[in-house]
Simulated assay, not measured.
Amino acid sequence: MIISILGIRGILLNRQNILIMSMPIESMLLAFNLNFLVFSVSLDDMMGQSFASLVPTVAATKSDIGIAIFIITFLV
């Protein structure tokens, strides 16, 4: 919960730079991933673990978009 709040605060404070704004999004994704895993273990259900395996895919896609924005900004 605290990591999610810090991620939202980081997004609201760093609106000028898209690359710096993507770092709090990454921490929010990790917080959601941790919540999925904790509740999956506590409820003895595999659904949370299957959702947790999809979060790194979203994070990798986000970093690819960030790298593409960086390349377009500085190399073109």
Rank of each mutant, 00 (worst) to 15 (best):
L54N: 02
I25K: 02
V41F: 07
M21H: 00
Q49T: 03
L19M: 09
M21E: 09
N33F: 13
A59P: 04
G10H: 10
T61N: 03
V58G: 02
L29T: 05
V38K: 01
N14H: 10
L37P: 02
E26S: 05
R9M: 10
S42F: 06
V41T: 10
Q49W: 13
Q49H: 07
G7S: 11
I25A: 01
M23Q: 11
V55K: 01
G66H: 01
V38Y: 11
S27E: 13
I8H: 10
I65H: 04
I25N: 02
I11F: 11
Q16F: 10
L37T: 01
D44R: 11
L54T: 00
S22N: 06
M47W: 15
G66P: 01
M21R: 04
T61M: 10
L37V: 02
S40T: 07
N33C: 04
L29H: 07
S27K: 05
I8S: 13
Q49S: 08
D44G: 00
S27G: 03
S22P: 08
M46V: 08
M23E: 14
L34W: 07
N14V: 08
V41Y: 03
I25Y: 06
N17P: 06
I3H: 02
N14G: 01
S22E: 07
K62E: 08
Q49G: 03
M46E: 11
S4L: 11
V58K: 02
A31Y: 12
N33Q: 13
S40Q: 03
D44W: 12
G10P: 15
F36H: 12
I11W: 09
A59Y: 14
S63N: 01
A59F: 13
V38F: 05
M46G: 08
A59G: 07
L6I: 15
D64Y: 14
L12E: 15
G10E: 14
L13Y: 09
T61L: 13
L29F: 11
S22W: 08
I3T: 10
G48V: 15
L54C: 00
L37H: 09
E26H: 01
L43Y: 01
K62L: 14
I18Q: 03
I3P: 12
L30S: 14
M46F: 15
M23T: 04
F51G: 01
D44N: 15
Q16A: 03
I5V: 09
L54F: 08
G7L: 06
I18W: 09
M46I: 00
A52F: 15
A59C: 05
Q49D: 05
Q16Y: 09
I25M: 09
S22C: 01
S42R: 12
R9C: 11
F32A: 03
G48M: 06
L6D: 10
V38R: 01
P56C: 08
A60F: 14
I18S: 07
L43S: 08
I11D: 03
L29A: 05
S50A: 09
A59E: 15
S53M: 12
S42D: 12
V58S: 04
N35R: 01
